[in-house]
Write a protein that binds this DNA or RNA. Structure first.
Ligand SMILES: [Mn+2]
Ligand SMILES: [Mn+2]
Ligand SMILES: [Zn+2]
Ligand SMILES: [Zn+2]
Lengths: 130, 130
DNA sequence: GTTGTTAATAAAAATTATTATCAAAAAAAG
DNA sequence: CTTTTTTTGATAATAATTTTTATTAACAAC
């Protein structure tokens, strides 16, 4: 279990109940859209405003707590910031799986890389056997 | 110079003046947003409708003429579909540069890759020396 | 405990982005 | 040339996102 309060404080953000709940949703699913967070949280927390989620997602991205994963043809998903890794995105079931970045050696000249975003689209193991 | 008429026909799309102009904009800039296409084309072609651009961009993506490049924190750009390559995206000047995919060896098990999307964010040569 | 100060939230409004509708124009087929 | 099909432009409708405003929560000073 992750300590969202410390995580937020480490990144100079106050640990409000809204923020910790957003992080809980993100962490539970691994990768999730803003709409999905809203749908999920408003069950237990009906007064929560969608605008608050947008605002806090943006804030937490800016403060490096979470990262955006833009996806071709659909809405961005968000995940807790962690060691760099790549995404295997299944075109059939939509599942997103994390994999080691080490399976991908990159050698670029004349460019100072700050961060990498590697999405591989295809069929997951499950969907291959159907 | 690219033959947009053949390109469209090869992909079972009729070569309208709107479509060839959209492709011309995309090709001239390499990578461009929908808004930028509209701003650019309406100078020479004031009656062109933004809805027509949205409609044709979607259609040309579906027919494999162009591809969407989703980018963290900003609007998607589009480019002519060509051999797979990676993108070097400068966080300072915003420039997008194509590079060979060969500089990146990928070795994944249990996943059937259909296509790859590799964006490297950082500083381009120009912006490094500032 | 009350006040003042600040920050965060919820609700509402405004703005922006995207998609749908449909008549007119253009292109293709016959 | 006439009919049929496709595409476009204009506009309306919807959806997504941002901004504004009013309310509430937190908390230290009095
Ligand atoms: Mn991930
Ligand atoms: Mn490119
Ligand atoms: Zn799958
Ligand atoms: Zn640059």
């Amino acid at each position: 279990m992750v300590d969202y309060i410390s995580l937020l404080k480490q990144n100079n953000l106050k640990a409000t109940i809204q923020r910790t709940n957003i992080l809980k949703s993100i962490n539970r699913t691994g990768h999730i859209t803003i709409d999905e967070i809203y749908e999920e949280l408003k069950i237990d927390y009906p007064t929560l405003s969608l605008a608050t989620i947008y605002k806090n997602i943006l804030l937490m991205v800016q403060h490096g707590v979470i990262v955006e994963i833009p996806i071709s043809g659909e809405k961005s998903k968000y995940e807790i910031k962690k060691d760099e890794h790549i995404h295997l995105i299944c075109k059939s079931c939509g599942n997103i799986e994390d994999r080691e970045l080490s399976s991908c050696n990159i050698d670029i000249e004349d460019f100072n890389i700050i961060f990498k975003q590697i999405n591989l689209y295809g069929l997951c193991r499950n969907c291959q056997s159907k």
